[in-house]
C-alpha cells in the first residue's frame, strides 16, 4: 500500500478530567495499516479512542480522523469508523445475525445491504451456524467475534479495537490477532488496536504508539522498536570460553560483557569489521563459535528506559 494520508492526526490533544489528566498535549500522526496503542491501564488509551469518535470532548488541542475534524464532524467520522469497545456490549437475547444487521442499519446501510454485509462479516470473523443463536450463550471468543463483526458491518475505513483479546484463552487470542492482521493487511482497513500486552502488538502491528500517563512515550514503526540495539550476541564453546573471549576482545579494543550464556558485544563502530574480528578471535583461541546474532530489543524495553530516552 502506498497511501500516505494520515488516518489520525492530533495536535496538543488534552483531556483534563479535573483530578485526572487523561491526555497531556498529545501530538501524533497515525497512518494506514495496523497501529498498536500500548499503555498500562489508565494510560489514556480508551479516552483517546472516545475522543477520536467525537464522544468525549477534549479540553484542549484538536484532532482529525480520516480528514474530518472531531469537534465539527463527529457524525461523518462515526459513519466511516468501526468501534469495538473494551467492555461487554451484547444483548443476550438477540442473535449475532440480527444484531449485526441492526447495527449495520444504524450506520446508515439500507436493510437489504445490511443483511448482505452482516452475513459477509460474520463469515469473515468465523461465526458459522452459531450466528443464529442468542448471544447470551456465547463463549468469550464468540462474543469478541460478534463485537468485531458489528465494527466491520458498515465497511469502515478505520476500526478502533479496544483490547480485543481481553479475556481470551491463548487459542482464541491467536485467532483474534490473526483476524486483526487480516483486517489491516487483506481488507485494507486501517486499524488502531489497544492492548496492555505488548507482545501481542509486537506480532501484528506495523506501528506502535506507547502512551504513559496520557503522554506520548514513543511512536514509531514496530520494526524500529525491534531493531538491532547496536550490539551482537555471541556464543562460544570451549574451556573457560567466555572469559578468554572477553579478554581477547578487550585487548582488540572491543567492549563486551557477559550476558547469560552469551557475550553482548557493542558494535557501534563498524559492524562488518567486528564480525570478522569475532570470527578470527574465536579461531585464534581455538574456541567453537556457536552463533553470532543481532541483539533485538522487545517493546517492553521501552518502558524500562527513562521516558523519551529512545536508544
Amino acid at each position: 500500500m502506498t497511501v500516505v494520508a494520515a488516518v489520525v492526526r492530533t495536535v496538543g490533544l488534552t483531556k483534563d478530567y479535573g483530578p485526572v489528566l487523561a491526555l497531556d498535549a498529545l501530538t501524533l500522526e497515525i497512518g494506514p495499516g495496523i497501529t498498536g496503542l500500548v499503555g498500562a491501564n489508565g494510560a489514556g488509551k480508551s479516552t483517546f479512542l472516545k475522543i477520536l469518535l467525537g464522544l468525549v470532548e477534549p479540553t484542549g488541542g484538536r484532532a482529525e480522523v480520516l480528514g474530518h475534524d472531531i469537534a465539527a464532524e463527529g457524525g461523518a467520522i462515526r459513519a466511516r469508523v468501526g468501534y469495538l469497545p473494551e467492555h461487554d456490549c451484547l444483548p443476550p437475547d438477540v442473535s449475532a445475525s440480527d444484531f449485526t444487521v441492526h447495527l449495520a442499519m444504524m450506520s446508515g446501510l439500507p436493510r437489504v445491504a445490511a443483511r448482505e454485509r452482516a452475513a459477509e462479516v460474520l463469515r469473515h470473523v468465523g461465526l458459522a451456524e452459531e450466528r443464529y443463536r442468542p448471544m447470551g450463550g456465547y463463549s468469550t471468543g464468540m462474543r469478541q467475534k460478534a463485537k468485531l463483526a458489528q465494527a466491520l458491518a458498515h465497511d469502515p475505513q478505520l476500526v478502533l479495537l479496544d483490547e480485543p483479546t481481553n479475556g481470551l484463552d491463548p487459542a482464541a487470542r491467536d485467532e483474534m490477532l490473526g483476524l486483526v492482521q487480516r483486517i489491516g493487511r487483506d481488507f485494507g482497513i486501517a486499524v488502531i488496536v489497544t492492548s496492555h500486552l505488548l507482545g501481542e502488538l509486537e506480532r501484528v502491528s506495523d506501528h506502535v504508539v506507547v502512551l504513559d500517563g496520557g503522554q506520548l512515550l514513543r511512536a514509531s514503526r514496530t520494526d524500529e522498536f525491534l531493531d538491532a540495539t547496536g550490539s551482537l550476541l555471541v556464543e562460544v564453546l570451549g574451556d573457560d570460553a567466555q572469559r578468554r573471549m572477553l579478554e581477547a576482545l578487550a585487548a582488540a579494543g572491543v567492549s563486551a560483557a557477559a550476558r547469560g550464556g552469551m557475550l553482548s558485544i557493542d558494535v557501534t563502530d563498524g559492524a562488518g569489521d567486528v564480525h570478522d574480528l569475532i570470527r578470527d578471535t574465536a579461531g585464534d583461541l581455538g574456541l567453537g563459535l556457536v552463533r553470532i546474532q543481532a541483539d533485538h530489543r522487545r517493546i517492553e524495553d521501552v518502558f524500562a528506559e527513562p521516558a523519551g530516552g529512545a536508544r
Binding site: 464522544l55 462515526r78 469508523v81 456490549c89
Partner: peptide, 18 residues
Amino acid sequence: SRDLRHGTISLYLARPLR
C-alpha cells in the same frame, strides 16, 4: 434500560446518530 444494562448504548453512540 436494555441498551444501558448491556452496554449496547456505546455501539449506538459510536455510530452517526447523535
